[in-house]
């Protein structure tokens, strides 16, 4: 068994060496396509993850009309709490808010009577429905309809648009490059079959099984895709490091999560290997047709 595996691997390696340039082209194109698909998928999940953490950081401020009573505030808070997608509601009394302002900005607040209304701090469960929650709150009687609700609408839009952009970029460029890589692997295998027609003929003459004849070519395609995956995972690592350095250089403080190297290496290698196998099988099907 080991002898047979050694023979098949040896044959595949011979073919890889013999078609050096074609192999290199197939590996690099696979790598770039997997880099784009893998890298953009990685970025997509990261942005999505970030989007999911936004509601936790994200507070909606609800400013009440002037002169409302404590009981009315409690009822309004209760009404908001009952809305779907609302996690918590906290009352911020106007006196406490003003005292804080006075502490933080004594020069600006000196001699001014407290202009702040009572407010409610609302945290959401899901970011996606923030607009409808805001509309519902604006409809409440004690809430100022103009400027009564304030929240970071732009962040939410940015996250959504980023996700969409990443998704489309990934689909568009990833598909184009994946198709290119597939064609290159396909051609590499066909050329390999052509350059090894002597060996194939000998195998046929002496009665080697079809599996034995085809296996080296399939291994070759798989290795090309697999190496493409390995290179792609290192390219993504390099891209993430480059991004961190860039953010540092422009003084943007952002904490990017650690790159899951092993996971990406495994996932992209497997995906590349499987894709290479599919392409080489298709090439051999054509060859033996």
């Amino acid at each position: 068994m080991l002898d047979r595996i050694e023979f098949l691997l040896g044959e595949a390696l011979t073919a890889l060496r013999r078609n050096g340039m074609m192999t290199l082209a197939a590996i690099t194109t696979s790598a770039v396509s997997l880099f784009l698909i893998g890298g953009l998928s990685y970025a997509y999940f990261r942005v999505q993850e970030y989007g999911q953490t936004l509601p936790g950081k994200f507070e909606m401020r609800v400013f009440l009309r002037s002169g409302v009573k404590e009981g009315e505030i409690s009822r309004t808070a209760e009404a908001i709490r009952k809305m779907p997608d609302v996690a918590t509601v906290t009352w911020i009394p106007r006196d406490l808010a003003w005292a804080k302002q006075k502490r933080e900005h004594p020069d600006l607040t000196e001699g001014i009577e407290n202009p702040l209304p009572d407010a409610l701090k609302v945290k959401l469960k899901a970011l996606t429905n923030a607009d409808s929650v805001a509309d519902n709150i604006r409809g409440l009687a004690l809430v100022d309809p103009d400027g009564g609700v304030s929240y970071l609408k732009d962040e939410q839009r940015f996250a959504d648009q980023s996700l969409q952009l990443i998704r489309w970029l990934g689909i568009l460029f990833g598909s184009i490059l994946l198709a290119t890589a597939g064609i290159l692997i396909y051609n590499a295998i066909r050329m390999a079959a052509l350059s090894r027609r002597n060996e194939v003929r000998i195998m046929e003459l002496v009665g080697a099984s079809r599996a034995m004849i085809k296996a080296p070519f399939m291994i070759e395609g798989m290795v090309q895709g697999l190496l493409g995956g390995v290179v792609a995972s290192f390219m993504i690592l390099a891209a993430q490091r480059g991004l961190i350095q860039f953010l540092d250089s422009v003084k943007i403080q952002a904490t990017l999560p650690a790159y899951p190297m092993l996971f990406m290496l495994g996932a992209l290698s497997l995906a590349g290997g499987a894709y290479g196998l599919v392409c080489s099988t298709a090439a051999l099907r054509r060859e033996s047709a």
């Binding site: 002898d3 047979r4 023979f7 000998i202 195998m203 003459l205 002496v206 009665g207 080697a208 034995m212």
Partner: peptide, 9 residues
């Protein structure tokens, strides 16, 4: 080579 192709050790 031919022998290995038919599975000989």
């Amino acid at each position: 080579y031919a022998m290995r192709a038919v599975g000989a050790t």
